[in-house]
C-alpha cells in the first residue's frame, strides 16, 4: 500500500534552509518498523541521510522525532503511525543534515557527570561482592542507550544545553550514586548541587514519556534531589 511521509530535509551544501518533503512509499506496514520504511525511501533517493546501526533498539543510533514524539525508528511499528508520517531530527540539537543532529552537546553533558565507577580501594583478586538487592538498585538506570530521546524532549535542556545536565546524564549520575561499589557519592552530589546542572529539572516528565527503553529519569532525578536534602539536614 502507499504510505505518505513528510520528511525534514536539509543539506547545508545545497539548501538555504530546511524544508519538509512529501514522499510516498509502496510498503506493507504490517510487521514493518519505521526504520524499514526510511531505508526503503533511501534506496530510492540516496540523498536522505540518517543514522542507524543495530535495528533492534539497543544501540540508540536512530532516534528521530516522529509525529511530534521522540522515538527510535527501528522499534516504532509503521502501522501505529498516523499519516502523513512526519519525521524530523531530534529537537534542540543543531542539525547537520536531514535527520542527523550534532549529538556533541548531549555527549558533553554525559561526560560531565564522570560516568565511570569510582572506587580507590585496592582491587581484590576476585570480584567485589554486591548483594542481589544492591544490584537491583541499578535496574532502570544502567540500561540507558544514550539515544537522547529524553534529553531532547526536555524544554529545560532546549533552553540550557550548556548548563543543564539533562535527564539522560542525570539518570547516569544516579546509576553510579546508586551503585554500592561506588565511593564517590559525596563528590557526585557536589557536582550536581547547582541551580542549573540539576535544578533546571521542573519535573514535567517529558523524558519518561520519550524513553524508548521504558526508563524513568524523573524518578532518578527525584532520588538525587532527596539525597541532597537528606545530607543538608
Amino acid at each position: 500500500m502507499r504510505v505518505k511521509f513528510r520528511l525534514y530535509r536539509y543539506n547545508p551544501e545545497t539548501d538555504a534552509k530546511p524544508y519538509l518533503q512529501d514522499v510516498e512509499l509502496d510498503i506493507e506496514p504490517a510487521g514493518k518498523m519505521l526504520l524499514d520504511a526510511l531505508i526503503a525511501i533511501k534506496a530510492q533517493d540516496e540523498t536522505l541521510s540518517l543514522r542507524r546501526s543495530c535495528r533492534e533498539g539497543v544501540c540508540g543510533s536512530d532516534a528521530v522525532n516522529v509525529n511530534g514524539r521522540n522515538r527510535l525508528a527501528c522499534i516504532t511499528p509503521l502501522s501505529e503511525l498516523k499519516e502523513p508520517i512526519e519525521v524530523r531530527p531530534l529537537p534542540g540539537l543543531p542539525v547537520i543534515r536531514d535527520l542527523v543532529v550534532d549529538m556533541e552537546p548531549f555527549y558533553r553533558q554525559y561526560r560531565s557527570i564522570r560516568p565511570w565507577l569510582i572506587n580507590d580501594d585496592p582491587e581484590p583478586e576476585v570480584e567485589r561482592l554486591q548483594s542481589p538487592e544492591d544490584r537491583a538498585l541499578l535496574d532502570g538506570a544502567y540500561e540507558c542507550i544514550l539515544c537522547a530521546c529524553c534529553t531532547t524532549s526536555c524544554p529545560s535542556f532546549w533552553w540550557n544545553p550548556d548548563t543543564f545536565v539533562g535527564p539522560a546524564g542525570l539518570l547516569q549520575a544516579y546509576r553510579f550514586i546508586a551503585d554500592s561499589r561506588d565511593e564517590a557519592t559525596a563528590a557526585r552530589l557536589d557536582n550536581l548541587e547547582d541551580p542549573y546542572r540539576l535544578y533546571r529539572c521542573r519535573g514535567i516528565m517529558s523524558c519518561v514519556e520519550a524513553c524508548p527503553k521504558g526508563l524513568n529519569p524523573t524518578e532518578a532525578i527525584g532520588r538525587i534531589k532527596s539525597l541532597l536534602v537528606k545530607r543538608r539536614v
Partner: peptide
C-alpha cells in the same frame, strides 16, 4: 579478564552470596 570488568564497574547480575 572478567574480574577486571567487574572492577571497572560492569553491572553483572549477582548470586545470593554476592558473586557474579
Amino acid at each position: 579478564a572478567v574480574y577486571e570488568l567487574e572492577h571497572m564497574g560492569l553491572p553483572f547480575s549477582r548470586l545470593d552470596n554476592g558473586k557474579i
